[in-house]
Amino acid sequence: MARYRGPKAKIARRFNDPIFGPSKAVSKKPYGPGQHGRGRRRKQSEYAIQLIEKQKAKYTYGVLERQFRNLFDKASRKSGITGEVLLQLLESRLDNVVFRLGIAPTRRAARQLVLHKHITVDGVVVNIPSFTVKAGSVIAVREKSKSLEAITNSLAVRANRYGWMEWDNSQMAGKMTNVPAREDIPENINEQLIVELYSK
Score class of each variant (00 low, 15 high):
residue 164 W to L: 02
residue 167 W to Q: 05
residue 76 S to P: 01
residue 72 F to C: 08
residue 33 P to S: 00
residue 100 R to Q: 07
residue 136 G to S: 11
residue 6 G to H: 07
residue 145 S to D: 12
residue 124 V to S: 15
residue 33 P to C: 02
residue 113 L to G: 07
residue 66 R to K: 15
residue 159 A to I: 10
residue 192 Q to R: 12
residue 47 Y to M: 10
residue 77 R to E: 15
residue 49 I to P: 00
residue 161 R to T: 11
residue 100 R to F: 05
residue 92 S to W: 03
residue 43 K to V: 09
residue 50 Q to K: 15
residue 188 N to G: 01
residue 164 W to F: 14
residue 72 F to A: 12
residue 180 P to G: 08
residue 46 E to Q: 12
residue 41 R to V: 14
residue 111 R to V: 00
residue 27 S to E: 10
residue 77 R to C: 11
residue 159 A to Q: 15
residue 135 A to M: 06
residue 13 R to W: 03
residue 29 K to T: 09
residue 183 E to L: 07
residue 128 I to F: 08
residue 191 E to G: 08
residue 16 N to S: 12
residue 43 K to E: 07
residue 99 F to H: 14
residue 91 E to F: 03
residue 162 Y to P: 05
residue 165 M to G: 05
residue 146 K to L: 10
residue 189 I to M: 07
residue 53 E to T: 10
residue 65 E to S: 05
residue 174 G to Y: 10
residue 12 A to F: 01
residue 131 F to C: 07
residue 55 Q to L: 05
residue 166 E to C: 06
residue 197 L to C: 08
residue 138 V to R: 13
residue 136 G to Y: 05
residue 20 F to H: 06
residue 26 V to S: 08
residue 78 K to C: 12
residue 158 R to F: 11
residue 195 V to F: 09
residue 30 P to R: 04
residue 164 W to R: 10
residue 187 E to A: 11
residue 51 L to E: 09
residue 136 G to W: 06
residue 4 Y to K: 01
residue 104 A to T: 01
residue 117 K to R: 15
residue 70 N to M: 13
residue 128 I to P: 01
residue 139 I to L: 06
residue 184 D to S: 14
residue 144 K to V: 07
residue 142 R to Q: 13
residue 69 R to W: 06
residue 54 K to D: 06
residue 41 R to E: 11
residue 173 A to C: 13
residue 121 V to C: 08
residue 62 G to F: 08
residue 27 S to R: 14
residue 128 I to L: 14
residue 175 K to S: 15
residue 170 S to W: 00
residue 49 I to H: 04
residue 171 Q to I: 12
residue 142 R to W: 05
residue 175 K to M: 14
residue 79 S to L: 05
residue 72 F to H: 14
residue 138 V to P: 08
residue 36 H to N: 12
residue 60 T to M: 13
residue 4 Y to G: 01
residue 112 Q to F: 02
residue 145 S to Y: 03
residue 14 R to T: 04
residue 92 S to P: 06
residue 41 R to L: 11
residue 36 H to K: 10
residue 85 V to G: 03
residue 83 G to T: 02
residue 174 G to F: 06
residue 106 T to Y: 03
residue 66 R to M: 07
residue 137 S to E: 09
residue 40 R to T: 09
residue 165 M to P: 02
residue 89 L to P: 08
residue 68 F to P: 05
residue 21 G to P: 12
residue 116 H to N: 13
residue 48 A to C: 01
residue 74 K to H: 05
residue 67 Q to L: 06
residue 50 Q to P: 03
residue 74 K to Q: 14
residue 192 Q to G: 09
